[in-house]
């Protein structure tokens, strides 16, 4: 028992095995991204203002360079297909909000090298609402656009 422990300690201490493991990304696999933890405050915010604040985007500028694809009328609020395509250079982050949902933030994505600011997702809408996409660039500027979606049958409760 003691032998094994000693060997292990020696192994770690002696020759930078630990730092090698760190460098290889064994111990910390995805430190590329700024926000690793689930942003509880943002997801539990009950209105758009609070949710925007929680992601650090108090007043995003309106932008026509974000293309928000959403149906004008969604018959089933439980499954509403949404696409967000950001034509803003260096898009590093996209968040998607449904303004009248009980919890407006639906999902957010951070992009690293190579990933395009282009996402597709299916969300629930509680009722007819505006859907808003917020884009953050690599240098920390926020942009936003929104689109109204009519919902015939809501998709939240039952």
């Amino acid at each position: 028992m003691d032998m094994i422990r000693r060997t292990v300690l020696k192994g770690i201490g002696a020759s930078g095995v630990l730092s090698a493991a760190l460098a290889a990304g064994v111990l910390k696999p995805t430190q590329v991204f700024a926000a690793e933890e689930w942003n509880k405050a943002a997801f539990e915010a009950k209105d758009l203002g609070a949710a925007l604040k929680a992601i650090g985007a108090a007043a995003p500028a309106e932008s026509k360079d974000i293309v928000l694809g959403a149906p004008e009328i969604a018959e089933n609020g439980a499954v509403v297909p949404i696409t967000v395509t950001s034509n803003i250079p260096n898009t590093a982050y996209i968040a998607l909000f449904a303004l009248k949902n009980p919890l407006p933030l639906t999902c957010s994505f951070d992009f690293a090298e190579g990933a395009q600011g282009d996402i597709q997702v299916r969300i629930r809408l509680a009722e007819t609402t505006a859907v808003r996409a917020v884009v953050k660039t690599a240098d920390g500027k926020f942009f936003s656009t929104q689109k109204e979606v009519k919902v015939t049958v809501g998709g939240c409760g039952g």
Partner: peptide, 18 residues
């Protein structure tokens, strides 16, 4: 390349495109 955070408003059996 991508890290996603997801809330309760994403549909059942979700589909994502990147």
């Amino acid at each position: 390349v991508i890290q996603g955070q997801v809330g309760t408003a994403v549909s059942r059996n979700p589909v994502f495109g990147f």
